[in-house]
Design a protein around this nucleic acid. Sequence first.
DNA 1: TAGGCCATCTGGTCCT
DNA 2: AGGACCAGATGGCCTA
Length: 342
Amino acid sequence: MLTLPIDEPDMMCEPRFGANYPRETLPENLERDLGRRDSHEEMSNSDMREELEDEDISEREEDEDEREGEPDANGLAKMRGPRRKKQSKGRHERVKVRRQEANARERSRMHGLNAALESLRKVVPCYSKTQKLSKIETLRLAKNYIWALSETLSAGKRPDLLAFVQTLCKGLSQPTTNLVAGCLQLNARNFLTDHNGDVMFSGRPPYDSMYPYSGSDVNAPPGHSSGTVDSSKPFRHYNYGGAAYDAGYYENASPEGGSPHLDGPLSPPMNFNGIFSLKHDDPSDYSKSSPYGMRYCGVPSRATLGQNSMYRASPEARFPYDLHLRSQPYQPQAEMHGSFHN
DNA sequence: TAGGCCATCTGGTCCT
DNA sequence: AGGACCAGATGGCCTA
């Protein structure tokens, strides 16, 4: 549907998207519009403007002030109301051309907006060329992603996968939630979206077999009663891999409610160089060097992820997620790149 | 076929 | 005056 290539330079940095398109690019669109006109068909824009200016001169003489001519109920001509200019052919054409120029500008502006949105798609999790997130879902996911990363930064600890994904999926539609789950090779049914759009944990985390709890009850994460999970409460955090995580790390976590850790003037903290090794590579290299292994993950279809989904985490599966601290070297990203390649 | 998503057109408003 | 921005309307395409 885009009529302009989406691989434009990063347009998110441009203050005004539409203004980014030079006027020289407009005639192509404009000509398309102008091609519908039944007159001036062989005329360039400049030619047309010149002609219209000429017409303006004669217009001033030609246009006559006109009062509402229709007679009223008594048969008398209406003499009140604003004077209306008679629309000469030239004036009508000029208005038409101006409208078409405005349409072309508006199209360009929207193309710029879409290009920026496309570049946003590429930097949020679960980018797929074959299955694009909708505009609204892209914005929601981006917001959640920023929020989750901010939380991670402010906590200064390795984030919990499921809680991170829950934050990512908050408010997203079920298909998008499935998409995120698929990208992360999680079972989407483990974090269901309730009627409020809140994502709730409703099952055993898929990686608990990979990262068993250090506690005695291996079936119940800290904060949950043995063997049962209260899905009405936010998913809490586990210990895995021998590392302890705050039970309240994402407590009250909500992208809607603002970060509880970001009350200061520097909100949100974006100390990329201090904690994360954030690289902004060309999208084509994400699969090789992205600090976030979720990028460029291929999802073959919009099919709902079920219990038998190919994305279901298996004990052999690696932690499909390598958001990590510099001070905490994590397993090589190369192990999982194959899974995420688009 | 209904609903979601999208591009485009259009008129209004605001700003320079 | 002209351009950017915005929101409503409309029609096309796709999918469940």
